[in-house]
Write a protein that binds this DNA or RNA. Structure first.
Lengths: 123, 123, 123, 123
DNA sequence: GTGGTCTAGACCACG
DNA sequence: GTGGTCTAGACCACC
């Protein structure tokens, strides 16, 4: 696993896990890899993974069962989806529009890209 | 002046100055406010403003004249415009599209916002 | 059976058993359910029940008879009652009072709850 | 500073700070001691204090200002008070009543203690 | 085996 | 100076 420098590793791991949950790699109710497993796989210090898992359990995405490991919470995928959509519409999109206005970029230019990329179509 | 937590303050200041130059508040060839002036106005540590100015002069947007302060470079506005547009089309926009795909957000939803905000019209 | 997260499961089980003994569900001198039985009933790891039973036998509340299982000790109920009352008056109650003082909660507020719950009356 | 064994040190520190904020030792809006200061004073590893501070800032009790330290949030005292009262009435008190019922302790016995301790009176 | 906590020490960006 | 992150390694309680 490779990491960017401008963002804490533990957050990158947490987000990566979110996308893995969305993709059903870790289904709801199932057990996550243990901290140590995940740490060796990601070539990272176990403490860092601990931090990722704590962050996720604070968001009710996973939950620890004493002595047994972490399990994906029920409804986790939907909750992740909600969080990401909210972040998109309340932060990413307004900032995006702000930049367009500041740079005088026309809506048409962006819409053309959206058509090219076929974002309309179902996954 | 208010700052977001997820970005270094000195960068936010630098970016803000860029937009001020684009808006002709600081015209090309003219003298910038002194570090101290800017610091008190923005309610910020002077050292932080120093860093912003250094960052801007590295980008050839402003330049220091010994003992006289910083001056807006000739061609600064156009250079800023180029940099920001490049960043927009090569980083912001692709990342934006990636998120839309991941979250299943339709082009239509974004286009509606663009219409509402009237990003088409000239300022 | 459901467990809280802030307390070891084996202790919660042990405490639960104590109350079952007080309530004559497991009368003195009688045989306890086997570890396996109890574990499946409580949906818990058998090793955890083992620990609960060991903890209880250390407190002379139950005792193991070789090859026959655990039996409720004679005088267990009275001993439990004593222990719990002692803990209540020497630990729980003082801590309770301390919190009331810290938070400025009036005696009246608590007394009202006690009346509502009818803690005066015999069960 | 002395710590109990049954509770994480970083939590004990965090709670201790809460009471110090309630007691105006750290007034709202004022700067907290730095992580390193607090660590040496409490004879604890700096990382442990970091965890305490993170925990508190998650609860909106303190907030970090980049490069300047942690500051007590506005309204922190009231928020702490609310949290503690909520915990008292929704957790401590019901559990307290449950124990009373289980042990057959009469309301009168508790009320006498409350009178002795004069919990009625204003602080 | 599992997670949870604590320590020690290092490096970095920021103000 | 400040906090923020990461590493390494240790010890513990719990299942």
């Amino acid at each position: 696993m490779e990491f960017k420098n401008n963002k804490p590793i533990f957050l990158q791991i947490a987000e990566h896990i979110c996308y893995e949950i969305l993709g059903r790699r870790y289904p709801e109710g199932e057990r996550m890899p243990s901290v140590r497993e995940y740490a060796t796989e990601a070539e990272v210090n176990p403490g860092t993974v601990v931090r990722s898992f704590e962050w996720l359990s604070q968001k009710d995405i996973i939950a620890s069962r004493r002595g047994m490991g972490y399990y994906v919470s029920l409804g986790a995928a939907e909750r992740i989806r909600q969080n990401l959509r909210e972040a998109f519409f309340q932060e990413t999109l307004p900032e995006f529009v702000r930049q367009m206005k500041n740079l005088g970029i026309k809506a048409e230019e962006v819409e053309n890209v959206l058509k090219q990329e076929k974002v309309n179509e179902e996954e």
